[in-house]
């Protein structure tokens, strides 16, 4: 377990929704609902956090969810209880998934790979637990390819990294390097906020 990351998010848990739970959630809700509407089969949801995404899940699904921070999952508990289906939430580090190979039909992430310390290893770990032809669905914010946004995001990352996420990750490249086949990228705001749909090639 990466204790540095765990401690960072444990500390962030009580105030996390002040920054993340307001305007962003309202604005991106329809896009998340569309992405999560694809949930079927055995589903792993990565980095459940305080459960902000749970209201956008389709009804009556059986979902396995993990997060590195037990404090985050404590905050999420009321939303987990209110969900119409079942969510099995576990404290786990994405780099050290304890699930067997080829365990899941689908993996979903939501603003996760801005914060995973070693994103490439994390994605490879996801690929291991995904079945061949299994699908990866991501709602992520990434760095921008375009100036001056690229410089701004590199600068802001020096501050935000200490409290939470990196702003300048190249998640699309990481997904490809981890061995996934990208099916679709949907840019929602500039080339920064996006959904990514990918497949674990057989």
């Amino acid at each position: 377990m990466d204790n540095l990351t765990k401690t960072k998010w444990d500390k962030a848990a009580p105030t996390f929704e002040i920054m993340a739970g307001g305007g962003a959630e309202k604005r991106w809700k329809p896009f998340k609902e569309e992405l999560f509407s694809h949930m079927s089969g055995r589903v792993l949801f990565l980095a459940l956090g305080t459960g902000l995404d749970i209201p956008t899940f389709p009804k009556n699904k059986e979902i396995t969810a993990i997060d590195i921070s037990p404090k985050m999952l404590e905050v999420a508990q009321s939303r987990i209880n209110a969900y119409s289906g079942s969510i099995k939430a576990e404290v786990m580090d994405v780099h050290e998934l304890t699930y067997e190979d080829n365990s899941f039909d689908q993996v979903f992430t939501s603003c996760t790979f801005c914060s995973v310390p070693n994103p490439l290893n994390g994605l490879r770990s996801l690929r291991r637990v995904l079945k061949p032809d299994g699908q990866l669905f991501m709602f992520e914010h990434t760095g921008s390819r375009y100036y001056p946004f690229k410089i701004m995001m590199d600068l802001m990352t020096q501050i935000t990294r200490k409290m939470g996420p990196d702003m300048n990750r190249n998640t699309v490249k990481n997904v490809e390097e981890a061995g996934f086949e990208i099916n679709e990228i949907n840019h929602l705001f500039l080339d920064v906020v996006k959904t990514i749909k990918a497949t674990n090639p057989a």
Binding site: M19, G22, G23, R27, S144, F149, M152, M156, V193
Partner: peptide, 23 residues
């Protein structure tokens, strides 16, 4: 822009505020 990003980002969303504010 960076400083105002924090209070305004809470209201309107972090990413949608950070880049316009800093620019």
């Amino acid at each position: 822009g960076g400083l105002l990003f924090f209070p305004l980002g809470m209201l309107f969303g972090a990413m949608e505020v950070m880049l316009p504010a800093m620019l």
